[in-house]
Computed example of a mutant assay.
Amino acid sequence: MIREAHGFSRERRHVDGSADLAQAEAVSNALSTHFHVSGYVLIPAAVVITLLAMKKPAIPTICFGAVLGCVWAILFQGMNPLDAVHTLYSGFQIESNVDFLDQLLNRGGIAFMLDVIVLILFALGLGGLFEATGVLTVISEAMSKLVTNVGRLTLSTIFAGFLGNFFRGAAYVSLITGSKMTEENYDKMRVNRTVLSRNTEAGGTITTPMVPWSDGGIFMAAVLGVATWEYLPFMWFNFIAIAITIFYGYTGKFIWYTEDRTKPSDKPDQQSAAGKSI
């Protein structure tokens, strides 16, 4: 269904040493016919990458890049201003008589991502509802009884993040469940919340593409044109990252503690010194 909705075919293509360059030449000629190809057309993308590298806010940066792209289309591609603005919502449309190029370029805009955006909005709303009604607190208290060491603490965080993806279908919600369900346990064991952030990423962000109905799973399946179960065995980075995180938890490597845990004798020394002075 996803393949049909996004225009992906089931045909699998590969090339060998004697590949035919006719398609590449056809695409190159079509691009030259319909667009003014030059180095300056990459400036909007370079500006966005530079601003993100400077750690500027993501949403204003991306919006600025979109506006800059419209300006570039008007100035250098001869596009009508109304058509340029219209592409922000409905995406770009072209008829180049090259199926590969049309399939690649005839997409984009807000409308193209509406299904994913709606899914994210509903998932975030459900996550906020669970937090406001105390559901996360109840689950957190139940999990705290099983957490007796840092290894189990790590596993509980990864599991809580995966639950956010499995039941609510969004990476944003998995970050909420992974952190909110276990943050008190980190404070009780005096483990620095930097470790909580890392473990939450391992259980939330990394496991998102593994769930077919999550926003990441839908996006990956749509882009790759294959079902989640088909690309799952090739997600070696995700599995290795989770394994390393669990290894760190049980071995204590790269686990940082708060100042109270690393220097437990500071406060007693201060109290005894105060008692002597009195």
Rank of each mutant, 00 (worst) to 15 (best):
I62P: 08
R152V: 13
I176L: 15
S214M: 03
T87V: 10
S18M: 10
F159C: 14
Q270A: 07
T258W: 00
D20L: 08
Y248S: 09
F130D: 08
N165R: 07
S32W: 03
S96A: 04
P57L: 10
A221P: 05
P209T: 13
A274T: 13
Y186N: 08
T207N: 08
Q77E: 15
F8Q: 15
A274P: 08
N106I: 04
Q77V: 09
G108S: 04
F100G: 03
G203L: 07
E184D: 04
I74N: 02
E11L: 07
M113Y: 15
A171C: 12
F64R: 02
F167H: 07
F35P: 03
F35E: 01
G161I: 09
N199E: 01
L105C: 12
F237C: 09
V191A: 04
L104A: 14
H14M: 09
L82F: 04
E141C: 00
P81E: 03
E11C: 01
V67Y: 06
T208H: 12
M143N: 08
S156N: 10
A45F: 14
V138K: 11
W72V: 04
A26C: 00
T262G: 05
F100D: 06
Q271F: 00
S214V: 08
S272C: 03
P264L: 08
S9F: 01
D20C: 11
Q270M: 01
A46L: 15
N80T: 01
G169M: 12
D83M: 13
V47W: 04
V37I: 15
F122G: 15
A19F: 00
G127S: 10
R107I: 00
T177K: 03
H14K: 10
P209Y: 13
